[in-house]
Amino acid sequence: MEIPRHWRLKQQRYSLVGEICPHCQVKIFPPRDVCPNCGGEANTPYTFSGRGEVYSYTTIYEAPAGFEDKAPYTVALVKLDEGPLVTAQLTDLGDTPVEIGMPVEMVTRRLRQDGDERGMLIYGYKFRPAMN
C-alpha cells in the first residue's frame, strides 16, 4: 500500500504540474525543487501543455506486477514541447503505428489499482496520438 505517495503525487500525475526555474526559466518535470540547468532553487509550479512527441518507445509483452491485464502495451519517452523528457504509457493507439517523432498529447487515465480490486484507483498521465 502506497496511499500517502499516491496522494502526494496527484497534481503532477493528473495534470502534468512541474516547476519553472525562477532564475533561468527552464521548465522542470517531474518537480524536484532544484533546477537541473543552473542548480538554483526552483519550486514555482508550472502546468505543462501536455503536448510533445515520441522520442523513443518499446512494447511491453511481459508486464510487471499490477499491469498484467494491460499487456501488450507501449511505453514511450515523450519529449514535451517545453523540453523535459517523461516516461509514460501510450494509449488510444487503435491501429495507429507508433513512430519516433509522432505528435502526442497528454490524457489522464486509470493507471492501475493499488493492490487488488479492493484497493484505491490510481489515475495519471498517459499520451495518445495528437487529435489536433
Binding site: K70, Q89, D92, R109, R110
Partner: peptide, 13 residues
C-alpha cells in the same frame, strides 16, 4: 471505452 478509461477519466477530458 478503452482498458484505462472510466467515468472519471472521461469526465476529466
Amino acid at each position: 471505452p478503452g482498458l484505462d478509461e472510466d467515468v472519471i477519466t472521461m469526465s476529466i477530458e
